[in-house]
Amino acid sequence: MSIQVLVFYLFGTLLTLSALSVITVRNPVYAALFLVLTFFTSAGIWMLLEVEFLAITLVLVYVGAVMVLFLFVVMMLDINLSRLREGFARYLPVGILVALVMAGELLLIIWTKGAQKLPLGEGNPDGFSNTAYLGERLYTEYLYPFEIAAVILLVAIVAAITLTHRGRREGGRYQDPARQVQVKRDDRVRVISMPAVDNKERDA
């Protein structure tokens, strides 16, 4: 067994275990942290496939940005754990039954038709840069789908703003920089003269 296969199985086992933990641990913060581990190990497997750009992006975007946001939300929300698990025992038998039937169906088809082993891909030549290759493909061969994906992101922004932005409310307090810079001393400070008071006399 070559070292690559060994590393693959190590990462694969770790990936499956941590993915299982995401859905089984009780504490949502632990679940989110296990999800980080899942992403990290899958990035490792991608590294084995020599797709370093995707692996790095997965860590940067998902672990670095998405999961941090996720943890933020999980910690800010007051999640009632007992309510989340309500009815778990009640649905469990049906869930197990459905899972068993589906697994049985899958096995039956594979058993009658026979599973096919896909051929292994050939490794990339030395000095091959996945990042350069990806960039080149993306902006030449797949330019059109790439642009459509950009439009989808634009629509997502428009939709999010349409559904949440309510404009300026009447009577709300807003800053107006133009008025802020025009402010004079007299607008903010008022000097008033008061008769002097003798503290000793007052305290006594």
Binding site: I148, A149, V151, I152, V155, V158, A159, T162, L163
Partner: peptide, 13 residues
């Protein structure tokens, strides 16, 4: 797939 997603996303909103 991308065309389908563009339709879906706009219609959800």
């Amino acid at each position: 797939y991308l065309g389908l997603e563009l339709i879906s996303l706009s219609s959800y909103a």
